[in-house]
Design a protein around this nucleic acid. Structure first.
Lengths: 285, 285
DNA sequence: TCGTCTTACGAGAAGCGTAAGAATT
DNA sequence: AATTCTTACGCTTCTCGTAAGACGA
């Protein structure tokens, strides 16, 4: 239905209050009440329980759909506007944590020499957000990093027709605490480390490890940020192991190369122009 | 924006005419003209060229988004209604071609004995449509078949939060023409057959083969249907090779088991009831 | 000149805000 | 009694249909 109603519903569910949602969205409480009533009438089932305001079962389910749905709508708008827009001389490159490695950085430098009139802004973003920023039109290009089998594509969130090209692959290393018995070894295998405790961090998601290398990988400390220094300190202090791209952690045992750190460049429709030139330079295919 | 405008745009683009679209949708030409104008004003760019009526570049791009977008909207509606609906005693099982093999059929039979009050309709559908039917609410359960590496999940079209469970895996065989030199062999490898001509049919998509086993696999005759008898006849007459699940083509050389025929059961939210019971019986996890 | 899309204008419907009412704490 | 959601009602805005206009073939 009307995306505005969905947005209102999300806001009410998030704030747990009709009046607060109305204030945030610039409506009156009455309008919000009517909008929710419209949604519920359309679906033929209540989405929110009142007093206290909380989503019902059906409402929970509707909420799960809401985010991806609104994103797709924004993505469609952004994508079309991009096709129609004149070639711009400023562009934003969204980069997730660990996504901008030495190879890409070097290519970016060379490309900027070749394209002197192009102003590039690199925008840091959380893990998994780069693709969403590109889809939503807030960035022209995005760099997404992840762990994958060599030359396998990453699993990107589905946000519409984005093009993804491999931009960089480098070996993974296992960050180990100081004095760990395996620290001296040249090549480690994941199989030797399934029973260890692993840091939970967006930089090296445990679920991804389990997907790629089987169960195990017990969870250690949970760190929700993406600061590399913090991660290496936590590992050194023994809070858990983690995988890092080799260039980010020199002098650490390499992981036997069944898995690599892979970076992909994602973008939507790119009309010929500086943006397309930069994309070609960053991810030579 | 408004899904109705998108639907109108799709219709106009498909029919190449404002008046024809108006007739089909029950609007006047004027209304269609205004709706298209609204869409174009919203995006700030023309979507259709007039005389003749055909999509512009931006319009083409918008069309690519339109189908998935409307599907997701329908999926959200259907999913929520399913959660809220009372447990039903009739349900539809959508089955793509080659999806309902002997193991699933046997489980279905046993389940129907255990659930005598449940009326099941098996609805045949084109390859790749089963997931869409389930997402759109036209079927409660869906069976999707495809070629995959053993115990690897299939790649399903993204249509929202569907649950997929492996239901059956069986060996693949290579269907060869009569008197083919390799027909006597017990086990074949795909690598031996990359240079052969392969039937293009939805039952065994060439792109999927190339994805899984490298380039090659030259295209032979294109058959757009999914009739098994037709396929075997075409193969026998030498129009090209194809892969089939072993149970569908007895007495044919087995493919060395790097790839299997895999069937998955997909469904949306299933409140406790007969539908959930049947799902559990069809895909024991 | 005919067919087709666009624009102008009036009627109806839909949505929002104000304000009063109901329900829960 | 106070807070919060719902409902009633008037007003504005939007959308559709009719009808006239513009543009090509």
């Amino acid at each position: 239905m009307d995306p505005n109603l969905v947005r209102t519903f999300m806001t009410v569910a998030r704030l747990g209050s009709f009046s607060a949602a109305a204030a945030e969205l610039g409506y009156t409480q009455s309008a919000v009440s009517q909008q929710i009533a419209t949604l519920e009438a359309d679906l033929g089932t209540p989405l929110l329980s009142r007093r206290p305001v909380a989503p019902t079962g059906a409402g929970e389910r509707r909420l799960q759909h809401a985010g991806p749905l609104l994103l797709r709508i924004r993505a469609a708008r952004a994508d079309v506007r991009r096709v129609a827009a004149a070639p711009a001389h400023r562009l934003t490159l969204a980069a997730g944590p660990l996504a901008l490695g030495p190879a890409v950085a070097a290519r970016l430098a060379r490309a900027r020499v070749r394209l002197p009139r192009l102003t590039v802004t690199v925008r840091a973003c959380a893990a998994g957000e780069a693709a969403r920023l590109v889809a939503g039109g807030e960035a022209e290009l995005g760099l997404v990093a992840g762990i994958a089998a060599p030359s396998d594509p990453l699993r990107l969130p589905d946000v519409g027709p984005l093009t993804a090209t491999g931009a960089e692959e480098e070996p993974l290393v296992v960050a180990l605490p100081d004095g760990h018995p395996l620290a001296g070894r040249a090549g480690l295998r994941l199989a030797d480390l399934v029973d260890a405790r692993w840091l939970r961090t967006p930089l090296c998601p445990l679920e991804r490890l389990r997907d790629l290398a089987g169960d195990g990988f017990r969870a250690g400390l949970h760190y929700t940020g993406d600061d590399l220094r913090t991660v290496t300190s936590l590992v050194a202090a023994g809070h858990g192991l983690t995988l890092l791209p080799a260039s980010a952690a020199p002098g650490v045992p390499l992981l036997a190369p069944r898995l690599v750190h892979r970076v992909e460049l994602v973008h939507g429709a790119l009309p010929p122009g500086p943006a397309a030139d930069l994309a070609a330079a960053l991810a030579p295919s």
